[in-house]
Design a protein around this nucleic acid. Sequence first.
DNA 1: CAGTATCCTCGGAGATACTG
DNA 2: CAGTATCTCCGAGGATACTG
Lengths: 129, 129
Amino acid sequence: MRKNGDVYDASCSARDALELIASKWALLILPALAAGPMRNAALLRRIGGISQKVLTQTLRELERNGLILREDKGMRPRRVEYRLSRLGKSLSRALRILDRWAERHFPALDAARERYAANQASQRSASRL
Amino acid sequence: MRKNGDVYDASCSARDALELIASKWALLILPALAAGPMRNAALLRRIGGISQKVLTQTLRELERNGLILREDKGMRPRRVEYRLSRLGKSLSRALRILDRWAERHFPALDAARERYAANQASQRSASRL
DNA sequence: CAGTATCCTCGGAGATACTG
DNA sequence: CAGTATCTCCGAGGATACTG
């Protein structure tokens, strides 16, 4: 992306940051970890519908960006814990606002979708006259 | 908000809402429209790297969810304007917080990535000994 | 248990050309 | 000018099996 012509000005890196955040899975993992440190298996259970591969990928990406910390206590059987870094907690707080927005407004979104569907239907039947 | 250890139960719809938001393009279109109503071509210019098709798709999806309004004034040549709905403005305000977070913290993210890369490199060379 | 390695599928998204 | 219609391709992500 961002092929030719630097259309957008200074906020390019911020845009990258946004894209990191705008990952569906990151948006679910961070809140999960906000509750406290968690292990791989627990995250798999907690976040329904994510595969082991994608979970690992996303965790690595979050770790790479300094949002979470990975602690591998060298035990047998193995035990690895993930937890939010300071930066991750900060982001998590910002995300909570979005979360609350979603909770508060999804009824409105649903309603809008129904209205839209109804409109579509009536327009289809009108054009058939 | 999914406080107990169960997989997501009640907050499924909110999760859907989050996924709508977690679209890279929606995250760019909404702030663009926050500045004021805009037409197709203007959005294409403003948001670098998006194709006509994807722009239309995203706009439709946002309209369907009641976040933006589409106004087609029946002129020749055609003139269609998009603008935020009340709901869209509300979301846009919530997103601005994220935006600010990204602007404020992307240096930290960058730094973390460099640290990570350095670690990787030193670990690779260590394992080669 | 945490993580990798493979293989494979499906759909997101680009390019291009066309229409009202 | 806004939008559709096709065709195409690439890669994110799922399933499964294996390893330390």
